[in-house]
């Protein structure tokens, strides 16, 4: 009951069991050939493409990692330099502070010397003055005494 003379289907050609051996024969041939193509051409090719892509991506990731490492290294260096500069700055500041103190002490010393000199000078002058006045008082009292004596002697 495959088909009539007009080549027109009666019922479902799918249920014509006389065609089954032929269909299955060609299907098996087709499957085997297709499987061989898949196994020996398609899969190696696709895996190769995929592996290449993977390799490049992995390479890029490794490169990025390397750059990241270098960046952190540079950052560390910068940190170190900064630390060094800071300590240097501290040193300079300390040094200049000491310098200022020293100079101030020197100036203080100078001023002290000057002051003591001034004081001693003033004391000298004072002493002079005092000595002068003592002499004057002596003289005056001598005069006064002679006047008194003369007055007394005259009154007698």
């Amino acid at each position: 009951m495959a088909s009539n003379s007009d080549n027109s289907a009666v019922g479902m050609p799918q249920l014509d069991f006389s065609t089954f051996p032929n269909q299955i024969f060609w299907l098996v041939v087709f499957c085997v050939v297709l499987f061989a193509i898949v196994k020996f051409f398609i899969i190696p090719r696709m895996e190769d493409i995929f592996a290449n892509r993977r390799k490049i991506i992995d390479g890029n990731i490794a490169k990025a990692e390397e750059i990241r490492l270098r960046v952190s290294e540079i950052e560390k260096q910068i940190e170190e330099e900064l630390q060094k500069a800071k300590s240097q700055c501290d040193e300079i500041m300390n040094a200049s502070g000491n310098n200022i103190k020293e100079q101030m002490a020197l100036a203080l010393e100078d001023s002290k010397i000057a002051t003591t000199q001034l004081i001693s000078e003033a004391e000298g002058r004072l002493k002079e003055l005092r000595d002068g006045s003592e002499a004057a008082i002596e003289k005056i009292s001598e005069e006064l005494a002679s006047v008194i004596i003369s007055k007394i002697s005259r009154g007698k």
Partner: peptide, 8 residues
């Protein structure tokens, strides 16, 4: 003949 297309 809708089924003709399936004839082997």
């Amino acid at each position: 003949h809708p089924m003709d297309q399936f004839i082997i």
